[in-house]
């Protein structure tokens, strides 16, 4: 469904994203992981139109959307969330989600109904009248999710929706993400919380220093030498293996 080919973007001399290929099949949950500074968020930004790629292409269901403005990409059915949550701080939760719902429901009454339905689905049904600026971190993460869902996307780009949450909250979001997929929405997620991404994603891409260094099923990735070294430093895999023998 999403087909990223040779995507590159440099900032000055730094290649933040370097010839990245990503495939996201229809109906899948695909994970994008990597150490801090690997270029994951830039990669997302380039896919969703927030950053112009230097080269490469992005196709959504066959349509070439490389370099499109974000609002047109959202209209076509691909919506991102932000790692650093971007609530409409002085609007209520209801109004926040309605902004998303208005994309497909121009009439107020319908947008309102759609927004309340989505809010209930992510467990925010009781917070509709709260000001978004007053939400906790967990609440803001859910709000990001709710707003994006309210646009009724085909493909959802989730940027670290679990960062900063406690284990109970993570479990809840994992359940919500499962339900979203069950409703037929394809998901590409950046995630640092390994236990979550390992249990959710059927396929994982590992990004390091702007390049994809490994891809495969979660179990393969966890055992991959290159991946372990990317996270823990060179020689770590050997030392771990040595430690296991000793």
């Amino acid at each position: 469904m999403l087909d990223v080919r040779g995507l590159s973007r440099a900032f000055g001399g730094l290649k933040a994203v370097d010839a990245v290929d990503i495939d996201v099949p229809q109906g899948a949950i695909v994970g994008l992981i990597g150490p801090n500074g690997a270029g994951k968020t830039t990669c997302f930004a380039a896919i969703a139109g927030f950053v112009q790629p230097d080269s490469g292409s992005v196709r959504l269901s066959g349509t070439d959307i490389t370099g499109w403005a974000p609002h047109r990409i959202a209209e076509l059915g691909m919506v991102r969330t932000f790692q650093i949550t971007q609530p409409f701080a002085r609007l209520s939760v209801r109004e926040n989600v309605m902004v998303g719902a208005y994309l497909r429901h121009p009439r107020r009454a319908e947008a309102l109904r759609a927004a309340e339905r989505v809010a209930a689905r992510v467990g925010m049904g009781g917070m509709l009248d709260m000001r978004a600026g007053d939400l906790t971190v967990a609440g803001r993460k859910r709000l990001e999710l709710a707003r994006a869902l309210a646009t009724e996307p085909r493909l959802l780009l989730l940027d670290e929706v679990m960062a900063g949450l406690n284990p109970t909250e993570i479990d809840e979001i994992v359940g919500i993400v499962r339900n979203i997929r069950a409703d037929g929405i394809t998901i590409l997620m950046i995630e640092h919380v390994m236990q979550a991404v390992m249990s959710l994603a059927e396929r994982i891409h590992v990004l390091n220093q702007g390049r994809i260094i490994a891809r495969g099923a979660p179990a393969e990735i966890a055992a991959d030498r290159v991946v372990v070294e990317a996270y823990l430093g060179q020689g770590a895999a050997a030392r771990l293996a040595g430690g296991a023998h000793g």
């Binding site: 959202a74 002085r90 109004e95 902004v99 646009t151």
Partner: peptide, 26 residues
């Protein structure tokens, strides 16, 4: 206060990037 256009303007006022991400032609 009660229309889609007004909601779009409020979203733009509060956070342009988020508005853009949600499909608003800012």
């Amino acid at each position: 206060k009660r229309s889609r256009f007004g909601a779009q303007l409020a979203a733009i006022r509060e956070n342009e990037d988020a508005a853009r991400a949600l499909g608003i032609d800012v």
